[in-house]
Design a protein around this nucleic acid. Structure first.
Lengths: 165, 165
DNA sequence: ATCAACTGTCTTGACATCGAGATAGGTTGC
DNA sequence: GCAACCTATCTCGATGTCAAGACAGTTGAT
């Protein structure tokens, strides 16, 4: 089945036959798929009155295990946003009572962000919903294909995640 | 090589062993890779004093071929933004002299957005830069692997691009 | 001890995006 | 012809994000 990127690549080959646009076959699909996923996630979370950015922060804390706390800095590397954005996110989540800010006992510059009980419940509930939706999207592929795809993507993400970028 | 998603999945398996989090192996990588790509693109385009959103619009018009014009509606489906966003983008590009707005002769509700000569040059210059950068990122994979990856991604994007979503 | 360099978090202002609704023009069936 | 519906684009207000810089606290070299 053809997709929008097939059309995009065909158009470039017509307009700029001098260029090799093969990289777009992979990376334009990654960007476009991510945008589609964002929209789908926004819809899935709206049942739980949660925004995608709230989900990202709450689940990062949930994954940390008891006592469900991380520094803003640790949250940055997991969510790939800037520090100003994270400060703002924590403010809003705190105002909603889903997290609380505690002083870091071992570094007086530092802060620890801790999930409240309600925050933990919201994270748990919405994760199940997200997984159901993602499973539906991935039903296009066999289990073996999903494994292959994950492995290929890992080769591309690993350099970003390991070399400090 | 391990990436951040491996750590994320391992954490969920420890914290929520009752859930099957396999979908995250694929889709969390797609989302994170897209964010990394955004940052890399922003950097690559800054040499040409161009923002990623400007690139997206200018190249959509460039791909259309002479006379390099499309309706705002056609630009929407290619760039996956809302109509309000597109109006705003066209306004700003027009103010910079990179596109111009013309009335659609066949539909008086409609508008045609046309690339100026300078807009076409900027699109052509920045495309070459983007491709060079993307090639570097994809050097992690063999040509055959890139082909496989593109094919697998196409299976996921095709439903979004074809069923009106 | 002290000073310079570094780190972690927050502040600020500019700006791009979204969603909902407004407006004007087109289309269809009767 | 005309009424009801549809479509294309734009307007507006709210909001989330970023980049750059401020600030307090920490670390390492001397």
């Amino acid at each position: 089945m053809e997709d929008e990127v097939d059309r995009l690549v065909a158009a470039w080959r017509r307009e700029r036959p001098d260029l090799d646009v093969e990289p777009l076959e992979v990376l334009s699909r990654v960007s476009r798929l991510a945008r589609h996923l964002d929209r789908a996630r926004r819809l899935a979370f709206s049942e739980h009155q949660l925004e995608p950015w709230e989900f990202d922060v709450l689940t990062a804390l949930r994954r940390a295990g008891t006592p469900y706390q991380l520094s803003p800095g640790q949250l940055l590397t997991q969510t790939l946003v800037t520090s100003g954005t994270m400060t703002n996110r924590i403010d809003r989540l705190a105002k909603k009572g889903l997290v609380e800010r505690l002083p870091d006992p071992s570094d007086r510059r530092g802060v620890l962000v801790r999930l409240t009980d309600e925050g933990r419940d919201r994270a748990d509930q919405s994760l199940a919903g997200l997984l159901a939706q993602e499973r539906a999207i991935l039903a296009e592929l066999s289990r073996a294909q999903r494994g292959e795809l994950a492995a290929l993507l890992r080769q591309l993400t690993a350099p970003f995640d390991n070399i400090p970028g």
